[in-house]
Design a protein around this nucleic acid. Structure first.
Lengths: 193, 193
DNA sequence: GGTATTGCATACTGATCGGTATCGGTTTAC
DNA sequence: GTAAACCGATACCGATCAGTATGCAATACC
């Protein structure tokens, strides 16, 4: 049982993660410095190095937190839909999560972590897909895990397209992600016999 | 007609772009410094600032060159396929191009440039899709431009998935991109009457 | 309430950053 | 052959970086 102050630390960590999320989304991971993060959090480098050994450790912690938050959000938002729509497009999340994918591709030891997380997400999504198809009186013609993979791929690709168009001042359209998803689900299933 | 030397400059620019491509793919755009690029190119900062005002200008020039090269490559590789397969997965290209999308989302003036380029690519791809469907005796049930959009989205999303799995040491599978593409093309077309 | 411990601020270091100014070898034009 | 223009190397600047060491106020325990 430690003796000194322990209640401050969680608040500090949370403030640092909040600040990092904003800055990674705005400037990118590589372009964001540790002093940047501390300043935005209203703290100093002492607080940072007291909680993380370096920037990458904070990146990983940030993703653990974001994954947990988003998983909870998706679990609440998705079920009951006829087809598993893509969850609401979150600009900040898309930017940070995509950048993390790139980071993982460049750093194999990090990639393992990402793949594991994606497998869990896909497993959940696969059951949702299976349920949705069942409600629609259809059965999949390929493994639902492969369907989930396609759904994730097309959704993420579409999100990037939409954000790009939006940044260029294009009219705010919903993107073709949902339509492509429902198309894939219909095409790779058939009416139950 | 200028009087001095002009043959050296193109070689220098090319060397800088080559070096930047390698480094942006390996470390990311934000994490790559100008001295890094110069060193890898076997040049000094004098060469850099003699040809580019800053790192972003080089990024844009690099993408212009890469777009031209890839467009030429795709034009030679794609036609004649029954379905427009995704071109061979190029790790370096996927990393840099995805990072540029993120950069564009963060910088609207850059996004306009990217959107314009993507529109050109999609136009070409749309004609290929139309030809492929025609050869297969089918007609699209939604605008071919929308089909092209879906194809691009699912391909890029799948490429990221494959590279991540590969980085994590997963078995080298082709990914579900091509299958999803053909599924979309079939689902959003019907036999010609 | 005394005290040990915690947790962040402060201060510092060596390295590296982006950017500018200038210098000198090289090439082209005539 | 020679002069002019080019173009990249060198040297330099102030700012900022990642990381460490230490100081000190706040807090939890007894």
């Amino acid at each position: 049982m430690p003796r000194g102050t322990t209640t401050r630390r969680p608040k500090t960590v949370s403030a640092l993660l909040d600040a990092a999320l904003d800055l990674f989304a705005d400037q990118g991971y590589g372009a964001t410095s540790i002093p940047d993060i501390c300043e935005r959090a209203g703290l100093t480098k002492g607080a940072f190095y007291s909680n993380f050994p370096n920037k990458e450790a904070l990146f990983l912690a940030l993703l653990d937190r974001s994954w947990a938050q988003r998983a909870a959000w998706i679990r609440g938002a998705l079920p009951g839909r006829v087809a598993p729509d893509s969850p609401a497009l979150d600009r900040q999340w898309t930017l940070v999560s995509t950048e993390f994918s790139l980071h993982a591709i460049r750093h194999p030891e990090v990639a393992a972590r990402l793949v594991e997380h994606e497998a869990r997400v896909r497993a959940e999504l696969a059951t949702l897909v299976a349920e949705a198809l069942e409600r629609a009186g259809r059965v999949p013609t390929i493994p639902v895990d492969q369907l989930a993979r396609m759904v994730v791929a097309v959704t993420e690709g579409s999100d990037i397209q939409v954000l790009t168009d939006r940044a260029a001042g294009g009219t705010a359209h919903p993107g073709l992600g949902p339509r492509a998803v429902s198309g894939l689900l219909e095409h790779y299933s058939e009416p139950d016999a």
